[in-house]
C-alpha cells in the first residue's frame, strides 16, 4: 500500500467519522425510530468510486468501529457491523454494473441492504420475527434517504474525479 493511498484512506475515514459523530449529535428523528440520514455513507460511496472497493471497505469498517467507540454506543456496534457488511456487499455488486452517474441507485440499494442487515440482527437478538413488520417502512426510508446521500456522493465524485487520490 503506497503512502498516497494510505493517506487518502486515513483522510476519508476521518471525514466519514466526523460526519458520523456530528450527525449523531443532531436529534433529527423521523416519524419512525431507527431511521437516520446516514450521511457518512456518502464518504463510503465516494471512496468506492474514486479509489477502490477495498479502500471503501476499509473506510467503512474503520468508521463503524471508531464511530461506536467515540459515540460511546457499543451496543449498536453489532447492528452497525451487520448493516455495514451487507450494505458493502450490495454496494460492491451494484457499483460494478452501475456507472458513476447512477451512484444514487447504488446508494439506495446499499441503504436497503443496510436496513435489512439491522433487521436481521434485531430479529436474532430479540428471537422474534415480529421486527420484520418494520420491513416496508425501512424500504421506503431507504429509497428517500439513499437517493439523497447517493446524489450527494454522485455530485462530489463527478467533481473530484480529477483528483489523484490513488
Amino acid at each position: 500500500m503506497n503512502i498516497r493511498r494510505l493517506t487518502s484512506d486515513a483522510l476519508l475515514s476521518v471525514i466519514a467519522l466526523t460526519i458520523f459523530i456530528v450527525e449523531a449529535q443532531i436529534p433529527l428523528t423521523f416519524a419512525v425510530p431507527g431511521v437516520k440520514l446516514g450521511l457518512s455513507n456518502i464518504v463510503t460511496l465516494i471512496t468506492m468510486y474514486l479509489l477502490s472497493k477495498k479502500d471503501a471497505g476499509a473506510v467503512l469498517f474503520i468508521r463503524i468501529i471508531l464511530g461506536s467507540v467515540f459515540s460511546g454506543n457499543t451496543m449498536a456496534l453489532l447492528y452497525s457491523i451487520a448493516g455495514g457488511a451487507l450494505s458493502y456487499a450490495v454496494m460492491c455488486l451494484a457499483s460494478s454494473t452501475l456507472s458513476e452517474k447512477q451512484i444514487w441507485a447504488v446508494s439506495i440499494f446499499s441503504a436497503m441492504a443496510h436496513n435489512m442487515g439491522q433487521l436481521l440482527v434485531a430479529a436474532l437478538v430479540m428471537r422474534s420475527s415480529a421486527v420484520f413488520a418494520y420491513t416496508p417502512v425501512l424500504i421506503v426510508a431507504a429509497i428517500f434517504v439513499g437517493a439523497f446521500t447517493g446524489l450527494c456522493a454522485q455530485y462530489t465524485v463527478l467533481r473530484l474525479k480529477n483528483l489523484r487520490l490513488k
Binding site: A105, I108, M112, T135, P136, V137, I139, V140, I143
Partner: peptide, 13 residues
C-alpha cells in the same frame, strides 16, 4: 424497479 419497490412497500404498510 425502485418505483415498484416503493409501491409494494407502501401497499404492505
Amino acid at each position: 424497479i425502485l418505483a415498484a419497490l416503493l409501491v409494494i412497500s407502501l401497499a404492505w404498510m
